[in-house]
């Protein structure tokens, strides 16, 4: 008898992908005040995939629970609402103070505790967040839990006896891995097309349960191991130049020492 799926979907509130990030005056971080935020796009893929597993009845035992979890400032509740509007059943908000950041290891430890508490047997998370681009949380979580992991998934299929076959995007092609539940899967861009969290669904999501907890409830404290020394903007792009003819091109290449 196949068990039922209990999916944990970690999501992160990040600066919207369309916003050009600005470095703050003190050059210690990226300016976040008054900047549009939204759900990390890779996390939208993981919410969508969880919902699709339920809707398309892809897992033989069915999906019992889809729980979204986010650690962040009070406003992170917005992305949890979005996740619930897309189809998650409930959400857990680990509240941090405004401006407080967690490193991937702390996030992984928190998610481990959450996965154990919620009795999750599948964690689907974005391969990376578009703000820090660390791409470490999923791997660390799998390591801490001692579960198999499939990173950068572009396809997730379920088989007999709780087995999962995941097609992963790797350099120059794909790699297919198979493992048994429980498992950690991180999503890549081509996994699915996330639905839009429509207004009526956002309204309905307000009725769903959102638990607020603190890091202490998981027996953790937020101790950064890294110190950010300096943040700078990338150097402005050097403009190109036009050459009149072949001689001009050759002269220019010689000037640059390419010939």
């Amino acid at each position: 008898m196949a068990s039922k799926l209990r999916i944990l979907v970690p999501v992160k509130r990040v600066i919207d992908y369309a916003v050009k990030p600005r470095v703050n005056k003190a050059m210690t971080a990226v300016e976040t005040a008054g900047v549009k935020h939204s759900m990390n796009p890779f996390d939208e893929l993981s919410v969508e995939e969880s919902v699709r597993i339920r809707e398309k009845k892809r897992f033989p035992g069915g999906v019992e629970d889809i729980c979204a979890i986010s650690a962040g400032p009070p406003k992170a509740a917005d992305v949890l609402r979005t996740a619930m509007a897309m189809g998650a059943d409930r959400a857990i908000h680990v509240e941090l103070k405004d401006g407080e950041e967690m490193e991937p290891l702390t996030v992984a430890k928190m998610l481990k505790a959450a996965a154990e508490r919620e009795k999750s047997n599948l964690v689907i998370l974005g391969k990376q967040s578009i703000d820090d681009d660390a791409a470490q949380t999923g791997q660390m979580l799998a390591g801490l839990l001692g579960w198999p992991q499939a990173t950068q998934a572009s396809k997730v299929e379920f088989g007999e006896n709780n087995s999962i076959t995941v097609t992963k995007e790797v350099d120059g092609g794909v790699e297919t891995v198979k493992a048994k539940l429980p498992m950690v899967v991180t999503t890549d861009l081509r996994l699915n097309e996330p639905r839009y969290a429509s207004l009526p669904n956002i309204m309905k999501a307000k009725k769903k349960k959102l638990d607020k907890v603190g890091l202490g409830d998981f027996g953790l404290t937020n101790e950064p191991r890294l110190k950010v020394l300096k943040v700078t903007e990338p150097a402005p792009r050097q403009g190109g130049g036009k050459v009149e003819d072949v001689d001009g091109l050759v002269a220019k290449l010689k000037e640059l020492g390419a010939l």
Binding site: Y17, A18, P41, I130, L189, P194, Y196
Partner: peptide
């Protein structure tokens, strides 16, 4: 919206 986001991210990460 989906395509705009997908294309932007693809350019950034692929």
């Amino acid at each position: 919206y989906y395509l705009k986001r997908y294309r932007t991210l693809r350019k950034r990460y692929d």
